[in-house]
């Protein structure tokens, strides 16, 4: 189900002295099955944008089409949209509230009005997808470790069986292994289900390693949009707005400046390694 964002504008407190333009004239096409990285520094509009995609915020002007339908139409079912476009907020473990893990994951599908059997089936499937073992199902979510809580919270959204999954910095606050595990999980989900994924991230290394396409936001507008290599080739512009390319891009740049015959478009460690090996003639 593709999403089309058409001339979207969002202005908070319009007409007052405190007017803030959160989004200005956003136009995007998000086709099925893409793995997209959304980057931008704090306040660049990326949080606003993702909340528009599932109808949590209403645009000041412009519109969003989901599967060809205008989500701002009066008789459009926003609740249904939210089940199709799943949104995992930052620190999603802060929304856990049920007495045990399983009931918490049931909350979403239950809100969709499914039968008890379907609800439980979906919850079970979702918990398995994020790799939670049965032994945890009847524990209080508050007794789990940070990384486990986050998986449960992600399962809570997966149980809605969305076609598009948006994750707002799913690795924030986790240790390096925890970060790899969550990102690996998302990659696996995408490969297995063909879901569209939009990953909001601050880590250029993560984005470079996993996504097919990068959208860079700045000051409420789309600044760059393309495959990682092309976007990171603009590393100077990225720096100007408080972002950066992955560390390896700079390493390659510096090597070239000091006389190595290397290309500078590597964005991951593996690419950089291969390029250096090639330059060394091995």
């Amino acid at each position: 189900m593709p999403i089309i964002v058409d001339h979207l504008n969002c202005i908070y407190e319009a007409g007052t002295a405190m007017e803030v333009v959160a989004l200005s004239d956003i136009n995007l096409v998000i086709p099925d099955g893409q793995f997209i990285g959304l980057i931008g520094h704090t306040g660049s509009g990326k949080s606003s944008l993702i909340q528009h995609l599932n109808g949590l915020i209403k645009a000041s002007s412009g519109t969003v089409y989901f599967n060809g339908e205008d989500i701002y139409d009066e008789d459009y079912d926003l609740k249904k949209l939210r089940s199709k476009v799943g949104l995992v907020f930052q620190y999603p473990e802060h929304q856990l509230f049920e007495v045990d893990v399983f009931s918490d994951v049931c909350y979403g599908p239950k809100n969709l009005g499914l039968s008890k059997k379907d609800v439980e089936l979906r919850a079970y499937k979702a918990l398995k997808m994020v790799g939670m073992d049965d032994e945890y199902f009847y524990q209080s979510p508050f007794d789990l470790s940070g990384g486990q809580k986050r998986r449960v919270a992600i399962a809570g959204v997966l149980a809605m069986e969305p076609e598009v999954l948006i994750l707002d910095e799913p690795t924030a606050g986790l240790d390096p292994k925890g970060r790899d595990e969550i990102l690996g999980l998302i990659k696996k989900l995408q490969a297995e289900t063909g879901m569209t994924i939009i990953l909001v991230s601050h880590s250029m290394e993560d984005v470079a390693n996993y996504v097919d396409r990068i959208i860079v936001m700045n000051g409420g507008s789309v600044m760059l949009d393309g495959v990682p290599k092309d976007v990171f080739a603009h590393y100077k512009e990225l720096e100007e707005v408080g972002l950066a390319a992955p560390a390896v891009t700079y390493i390659m740049q510096q090597m070239k400046e000091q006389g190595f015959d290397v290309g500078t478009d590597a964005t991951t460690i593996a690419e950089a390694r291969d390029e250096i090996l090639r330059a060394l003639g091995r």
């Binding site: 292994k177 992955p246 390694r273 091995r282």
Partner: peptide
């Protein structure tokens, strides 16, 4: 890595190169 940690990117790249025989 076995302690759930990692190393800086440069260190990791050097490590990978070393594994490839540099």
């Amino acid at each position: 890595r076995s302690l759930r940690l990692s190393v800086p990117q440069v260190t990791l790249l050097a490590h990978e190169l070393k594994k490839s025989g540099v």
